[in-house]
Design a protein around this nucleic acid. Structure first.
Lengths: 149, 149
DNA sequence: CTCATTGCAAAGATTTTGCATCACC
DNA sequence: GGTGATGCAAAATCTTTGCAATGAG
């Protein structure tokens, strides 16, 4: 593995991620780092995120919204992806490395690990959804016949 | 949900996926469908893949290589992603919906499901890797000291 | 001095979209 | 006939890369 040289930009990116729990995308990281490094380029952000992820100092999450998210916390934990607001939250669960064994028995090849994402509706969106349903059924209580028109 | 009208293109895409087990990307699907529909556009392929996935007739897989893969088999099963050749294979495991319950107990929000990918080295790459290692250690058997130089 | 890193800009790769036309029902 | 679907092309997103200049060891 190639030797790293210190860079203030890389340090800033790592510190920024360590201070957040919302798993930002490269773009969001870029816009925040720019407050301290107005000249930093998006390419530099991407290069450093790759480097750090390669070295296991941060995690790269691909949760299905076609934009990688990054996690400064590398301790074992799982993630939840809200299909409504696209937010990514942490989810503490006992480590399930055991399922790698189960998979190994069913698979010809070397299983090194797994990625597991839960999905659904996060607390905030769930609350919002219920409120909307209530107000909808109120404003429409005399128009229910229109539902099947 | 909006009513669908039949289209030969959509049918062809669905049939194509049903006949494969290698979870091709939109681009690969496009290039094959083009053999039967020389004028089909990539946009049409994407639109139909989205439609079919939305309706649960196919699966959309995001395995971390920044390109969606598609699976014509919607019966419950899991997937393995080879980090060397980027191939996606099926992996039959007993359904683990039970872990949704475990997650629900740890999470404020509605958990609707999970996606689980195993990763590692597939059988073909594993074999190839071993062959390369053997030939490497043969050509280098008198140069082992250089490993820590 | 050497080589990793940066900023910038251009290019790549993947996916979405506006619009006129076509096809299904 | 009405509206969903298509083909085409342009654009939107996200990510990578070539290159000359800069910075760390």
């Amino acid at each position: 593995m190639k030797a790293l040289k210190y860079s203030r930009q890389r340090e800033a990116i790592k510190d920024f991620l360590a201070a957040r729990t919302d798993h930002p995308t490269a773009d969001i990281i870029y816009s925040h780092i720019r407050e301290d490094f107005p000249n930093i380029s998006l390419g530099t952000v991407y290069r450093n995120l790759s480097l750090l992820a390669e070295r296991g100092e941060i995690l790269k999450l691909s949760c299905g919204d076609n934009a990688d998210h990054f996690d400064g916390c590398t301790a074992p934990h799982y993630h939840f992806f809200c299909r409504k607001c696209q937010s990514v939250s942490d989810l503490e669960l006992p480590d399930m490395d055991i399922i790698n064994l189960a998979a190994s028995r069913k698979f010809c090849g070397k299983i090194e690990g797994h990625t597991l994402y839960f999905y659904g509706i996060c607390k905030a969106c769930n609350t919002r959804e219920k409120l909307e349903e209530e107000s909808f059924s109120q404003t429409n209580e005399n128009e229910n016949f229109s539902q099947n028109a």
